[in-house]
Every structure is written in structure tokens, then in C-alpha cells.
Computed example of a mutant assay.
Amino acid sequence: MINATATNKRGQAPLLEHYQKGDFFLASPLRTILGRGVYSTVDTSNNHGLSNQIRNALTQAKLAGQNKPIVVGAIPFSTSTAAKLVIPKDIRIGSSLSIQDDECKKASSSSFEIQSVPEPEAYLAGVLQGLDAIEAGSIQKIVLSRSLHITSANRIDTHQLLKNLAFDNKSGYTFAAHLSTENDHLEDRTLIGASPELLVSKMGEKIVANPLAGSRPRCKDPIEDEQQAKELLDSTKDLHEHTVVVEAVKQSLQGFCLELDVPNKPTVIKTEAMWHLSTEITGTLKDSQVTSIDLATALHPTPAVCGYPTEDARNAIEKIEPFDRGFFTGMVGWCDASGNGEWVVTIRCAEIQGNNLQLYAGAGIVAGSNPDDELAETAAKFGTMLQGMGI
């Protein structure tokens, strides 16, 4: 393993500059990870057995002489889609990104054609279907998403887009994961994004989860922007939506923990595009041998990206949404041979293939949701990727 912790004189962490298409990259508030090449591929034919498959891959790598192997990659929303997980040939770990405000962003392409899938009217109809299911009592919450298909006049500059996302989202999780395999006959695919949401991290006996649910778009006017944050904190609808998510996360984690600290009230956090209700949950594990992927798969998918109850919400999503989510609302991250790692919810993201991007955004629907507000929320959430593209 190669460790890289130095930053250059302008403050730009060098690992971001060293990224090349096909690499794995994850920048979190604590560290930056760059994985290059493929030492081995994790067998992901059965997503239900991911924990054992990852353990086996790491054990085999250590027996073969790898000093500190790490599994990196992306896990999809649905268990019917195979995960993309590898042990890289070369792993570099650096400090958190330090990006100066005077460092310039550049457009990652020039001109675009954009198609909404579904069209806004169809999305509104889908929200009404979700509200009907809630009123009928079959579910309490459902997250419904839509997609933008973007065709660029020229090839997308993946590296520049990654730098733009990091520039705009200094406190979140910026990532890129290679989705293609050697057997794929199509052009390389890259999952890229800037998520505000940590699913779970594990370091030794300590764990952290940071569910987000309940949102408001940011405003350019500072007074209106602060008012949005205040309204979010006072919103009965959004506080209910947030409570559903926090309770589900608590139930999933408490069996693993000696201690679990769940704050009584959420706080608000902000990204460039959105305000979010946030609760940071911390805990101490009963068994330090529990891995980050054990915890992540126990949590996934949370009601923040699926709904509640989970299976009923997932079934409704499959009927209402006119596309396969793929890796959107899955997770991206890493796990080492000690079980330490961090997994981020795959939102504010896109898949890149040549001149094409597919963007995703969703909104949580609960009793009292207004379809027009949910459509506007998805539009605001697209802003993270669109700003990164220079659109």
C-alpha cells in the first residue's frame, strides 16, 4: 500500500489531481482514498452474502502477500443488480481535501440535450399513486425518483467534473467508481457524485451513522435562505419523515451496540443546493469483529431512500418508477481487512458513459406531501450535478 498525505502549496490534495478515469475515488471529511487498477474482483453474484464474499476476498489477498488490502466500490439499490467491488492493485490514502476558494472551476463539457424521465406530469401522477398507497395504510413513506438523460456535444471530462463537485461540496462525500468490467463490450461507465449522507462508518469499536430526511431548496437571498432552514426545522411533515428514518436506523443498529446515542432532535445542515434535517447517531459495538459492510447491509436501504416498511415501499417503487435505479440510492465506499470502513448513500449522482450522463434525484413522500413541492425538491437536488457540469 502507498500512503499519500501531502498537499500542494495551493492546498489542493494531490490525490484528486492524480485521479484517472477507471480509478476509485472517495473524499470524506476525514480522508481521501484513491484506488488504481484491479488486484482482484469480489464475487458479487449474491448480494445477500456480500459480507462473507468481502471477508473471503480480503483474506485471500492477505494470504497472497497483500499488506493492507481494501475492498472499494459501489453496491446498488436492488439486490437483483450485481455490486461492483474490487481490491485495487494500488491504494493511496491521504488527508481530507483542502480546496481553496480561488481555485477555478471549468465546464466539463460545452452544450447539452436534456430529457426528463419521467416527464414532470408523469412524476406528479406517480406521487399521487404513492399518496394513495399511504392513505390506504400499506406504507408510511415512499421515496420516488426521476432521472435526467443528458447528451453532451463532446465527451464528458470525468476528472474535471469530479473536481467541480469537490469544489462545490467541500463538507460532503465526493466519489467516482468504475462500473465496467473486462467482459463489458460497451464503453466504460463511471458512477460519480457528491453525497451529503453518510450511511455508516466503523473505526475499531466506534460507529457513526448520519441519516438525512426532510429537505428544502437553498435560496440565493440570504434572508430567504435562513427562513427556509427555520421552516424546515419547524415543519411537522418533514420532522415526521425524519423521525421515520431515524427510528429505522436506530432499530437496525441497536442490536450491534453496547451503547447507541441518538439525539432527540435533528439539526439542519446545508449543501450548495439544499437544506437537510440531520441526525448524527454514534455507538460502541458489542463485537469489534463486526465489519463496516455488516453494518451497511443491515441498514440498506434506509427509509431515507426507499420508504417504510421497506419491502412494501420497494414493491411500490418498482411499480411506479419507469426505470431501474441501478446504483442510485445504493452505497459507495470501502472496507479493510480489520472491518473498518465507511459507506456513503449514493445520491446527488450520475452515471457517465462517453457523451451521456444519467442523473437521478428523489423525494420522500409521506401523508401531507404536496406533489408540486416534491417535484420542485427533485429539481433542486439535480442542481448538485448540473452545477458541476456547468449547466
Rank of each mutant, 00 (worst) to 15 (best):
I293K: 07
V290L: 09
P322V: 11
A298E: 00
P309S: 13
C306M: 11
Q289F: 03
G330Y: 15
E318Q: 02
F328V: 12
V290T: 14
V305E: 08
V305R: 08
C335S: 13
H300W: 03
I320R: 06
N315F: 02
A298I: 00
V344E: 10
C306V: 15
P303R: 06
G283I: 04
P322F: 10
H300L: 06
T297L: 15
R325K: 04
Q289V: 04
E311W: 03
E321R: 08
A337N: 02
T310A: 07
E311G: 02
A296C: 05
T291N: 00
C306T: 15
R314T: 01
T310C: 14
S288E: 14
I320S: 09
G330N: 13
E311Y: 11
D294P: 05
L285M: 09
G283S: 05
P309G: 10
G326C: 06
E280K: 10
D336I: 10
T310K: 13
G339N: 12
L285H: 14
A304K: 04
A316W: 10
V332P: 11
Q289W: 01
T282H: 05
R325W: 05
D324I: 08
R314M: 06
L285W: 07
F328C: 09
C335K: 04
L295K: 03
G283E: 05
G339M: 12
G339W: 10
T284W: 03
D287E: 06
